[in-house]
């Protein structure tokens, strides 16, 4: 830290500077941020007054500011609502399944891809596997509905040619979660593997050489060297994945859900949408969103802290 000598020969420490000293010094930086912060202020903060309808009974004719206060009524209703509790449960179950099956998938994919020695082929596989990430669920939804259709969908036509009964995957409660989890893996396996592939490329080639000299088989190399080196990244990713367990993929479920599977498919975001926009219970819906967001924020703050502690890696 450079120090300056004041007129009286006293050393001016940062303590003595006016509070805006740094602001003045970095006014360019602050100025630069202005448009971005302004945009966030206008489009994110200004509408936040709307959160108060969680504590009011929203009456359309009166508007948000005039509707009567009801305190925590909607939050109490929330925990008495079987539909809410069911949606809460479904969210956790689907996220849990996605964690168990969807989390390891890109790791396995990355590790196996690393074993491919033909570079051109490896690149091709990578390119193809990222593609689904860029297609919206509005499109993918339509695609899967057609693909899984019991009458014209190729999956069921294949089942039929094998002499099996067609299954209506999207309307069968016992199948719906399987469909959600597997289409989720299908969409994200390539994209989520990027982080692991990068970490693998950073592994020192000498490690493998040493392994070979020690007589490690290829499987042993994969297991001890590759996976071993990936462990820190895996830990971090796992912490954040756990931190996101209450978040569900609205677009995916919304575009795939049919009414017969609501009992297992209705998650917090779709339920909040339905009860708010379709059934006009905005206050209830807002209370639900608020509840979810608070938990979500707490989880991610916790995950961030844990990650920083373990690995000095954080989102911010």
């Amino acid at each position: 830290m450079r120090q300056r000598i004041g007129a009286a020969g006293r050393i001016i420490t940062p303590r003595d500077r006016p509070w805006y000293y740094n602001h003045k010094k970095h006014k360019n930086l602050l100025l630069m941020m202005l448009p971005g912060l302004l945009s966030l202020f206008v489009f994110s903060y200004l509408p936040m007054y709307g959160m108060q309808i969680a504590f009011r009974d929203f009456i359309f004719k009166l508007g948000i500011w005039q509707s009567p206060w009801v305190g925590l009524k909607h939050f109490r209703d929330l925990f008495e609502s079987a539909h809410f509790l069911n949606a809460f449960k479904n969210t956790l179950v689907i996220s849990g399944l996605q964690l168990v099956f969807g989390f390891p998938a890109p790791i396995i994919f990355a590790v196996l891809l690393n074993e491919i020695r033909v570079l051109k082929f490896k690149k091709l596989v990578q390119t193809i596997s990222y593609l689904p990430h860029f297609i919206s669920w509005a499109v993918l939804g339509g695609m899967f509905i057609q693909l899984l259709s019991p009458s014209v969908g190729p999956v069921n036509l294949l089942l039929k040619t094998m002499g099996m009964q067609p299954i209506y995957f999207l309307a069968e409660p016992s199948w719906f979660r399987t469909v959600i989890v597997s289409t989720h893996i299908w969409q994200t396996i390539g994209w989520n593997s990027i982080v692991y592939i990068a970490a693998i490329t950073n592994i020192d080639a000498e490690l493998y050489e040493a392994g070979k000299i020690d007589g490690a088989t290829r499987f042993q190399q994969i297991f001890y060297i590759t996976l071993g080196a990936l462990m820190p990244v895996i830990t971090i990713m796992l912490i954040f994945a756990v931190g996101k367990i209450i978040n569900d993929n609205f677009d995916q479920i919304f575009n795939l859900m049919t009414s017969p599977v609501e009992s297992v498919g209705e998650v917090l975001s779709t339920y909040s949408y339905k009860i708010g926009l379709v059934k006009m219970q905005y206050s209830f819906s807002t209370a639900m969103g608020l509840f979810k967001n608070v938990i979500s924020l707490l989880l991610i703050l916790f995950a961030n802290r844990v990650a920083k502690k373990i690995n000095d890696y954080g989102l911010w």
Binding site: V42, P47, M48, I53, L277, Y282, T286
Partner: peptide, 12 residues
Amino acid sequence: YFNGGVVPNYLL
């Protein structure tokens, strides 16, 4: 993590 909801956004 927090937003005002779809109605205030529309009004804005």
